[in-house]
């Protein structure tokens, strides 16, 4: 029997292809930009292979639950933490700050 990881899905049974598409949201484009900018030859903070390894390590549950760019930012962020480029503390604080700011913006918009 073949042992395969969950991302290795070539040849498996699956339902019909849903050809509907969505336009990429700005935040998704930002994820893409973050990854590309951190991968430039002068920085080399991320590589495609590392990003993929991070995505594949999310595990079967999370992998299928998250959307494509959600997987990307999860992997990229984990790699930045792993490499010590950012710390858990910095990330936590900044996420709280962003969330507070956006919540205020949302209330202001209502």
């Amino acid at each position: 029997m073949t042992i395969r990881r969950h991302h290795d899905m070539g040849g498996l049974e699956a339902g019909p292809v849903d050809a509907s598409e969505h336009d990429y949201a700005m935040w998704e484009k930002r994820v893409d930009a973050i990854v590309k900018v951190l991968s430039t030859p002068d920085r080399k903070l991320l590589s495609t292979d590392e990003l993929r390894r991070g995505i594949e390590e999310l595990g079967p549950g999370v992998y299928d639950e998250l959307s494509y760019y959600e997987r990307w930012i999860s992997s990229a962020t984990n790699l930045l933490l792993e490499k010590g480029v950012i710390t858990v503390d910095e990330l936590g604080k900044k996420m709280a700050e962003v969330e507070a700011r956006w919540t205020k913006d949302r209330e202001g918009a209502e």
């Binding site: 935040w27 973050i34 910095e90 969330e99």
Partner: peptide, 16 residues
């Protein structure tokens, strides 16, 4: 409403 990963994306962009 924004998702946790959207917040994470913005946070990482600002941090770098």
């Amino acid at each position: 409403p924004f998702s946790e990963r959207m917040v994470m994306t913005q946070a990482v962009a600002e941090l770098i």
